[in-house]
């Protein structure tokens, strides 16, 4: 049965689009049929991260407004035949996306895919609420930093009240994905630790993505980090997270690039 998963955060710049692309590619690599949907109307970027920016002809709004058929707007990834993109529109009209339009598209996508990953815009306005509206599951992308954790808490509150699942007395299954984590700094007390964040947000952990230069390198060339360098630390962390989404039990660890002096001193394990 198809699963609708929203990748959200409240705060901008924490890695929603990077995570949507990386998780989508990792799921597709494992044989799942995946569509990633960009809900950031006016500021689309998922196409760029996936390297499909020059292949966009129709978009989400065109489909909502009946200008194009869903099949015309879907873009198939050139590397992974199981991965598809539904790009956002660049219109400035924020009301172009309607609740009914989103409901109908999601219902249609459910019949065609195993996973529907909705890349939410930042903020708590219309775009963000519509991206989460029909979700079964949510990945809350959080940086180990006070403003990101606060905004995640706010988004968790919205997932528990403003979604169709919540309104019908069910629950959206929520997972926290911690990105840009530096275990050395956390060990030195310079950064909120995983335990701190999980205790504050009281939400289960999906994965820990270490701070890494590989993320920027992958976005520079328009390839999800899980595809661009599957052996890199962030890619391994995303692949583990994708396996957990599929229901596998995978031991939680922070993959590291090399075992530095500080890691040795603190006895941290390298993956």
């Amino acid at each position: 049965m198809a699963k609708v998963l929203v990748v959200t955060s409240g705060k901008g710049g924490v890695g929603k689009t990077t995570s949507t692309a990386a998780l989508g590619a990792a799921l597709a690599q494992r044989g799942e049929k995946v569509v990633v949907v960009d809900f950031d109307v006016g500021l689309r970027n998922l196409d760029l991260i996936l390297g499909a920016e020059r292949r966009v002809v129709f978009d989400l709004i065109n489909v909502v407004q009946g200008v194009a058929k869903l099949s015309q707007a879907l873009i198939r990834d050139k590397r992974l035949e199981n991965l598809w993109l539904l790009p956002a529109s660049q219109t400035r009209d924020k009301d172009a996306l309607t609740d009914e339009g989103v409901r109908s598209i999601i219902a249609d996508l459910r019949t065609k895919f195993d996973w529907i990953l909705c890349d939410s815009p930042a903020g708590i306005e219309r775009g963000a609420t519509l991206a989460m509206r029909y979700a079964d599951e949510a990945v809350i992308v959080t940086n180990p930093e006070v403003s990101s954790v606060r905004d995640s808490d706010r988004i968790i509150g919205m997932l528990d009240s403003k979604t169709v699942k919540a309104e019908s007395g069910e629950r959206v299954e929520k997972h926290v994905l911690i990105t840009r984590y530096d275990s050395g700094r956390a060990a030195r007390g310079e950064m909120l630790s995983i335990e701190d964040i999980l205790e504050i947000l009281a939400t289960p952990l999906l994965g820990i993505i270490p701070e890494s230069q590989d993320v920027l390198r992958a976005s520079n060339v328009g390839s999800p980090v899980t595809l661009n360098n599957a052996a890199s630390a962030p890619a391994r962390a995303y692949i583990d997270a994708a396996r957990r989404l599929m229901g596998e039990t995978v031991e939680m660890m922070v993959p590291t690039e090399r075992k530095g002096l500080m890691d040795r001193l603190l006895g941290r394990r390298a993956a």
Partner: peptide, 20 residues
Amino acid sequence: RTASAPVARERLQILLAHER
């Protein structure tokens, strides 16, 4: 240096208790 993470945690706990 003094560790700043415990300060961050405490500030968040107080703030979020209020906001929730």
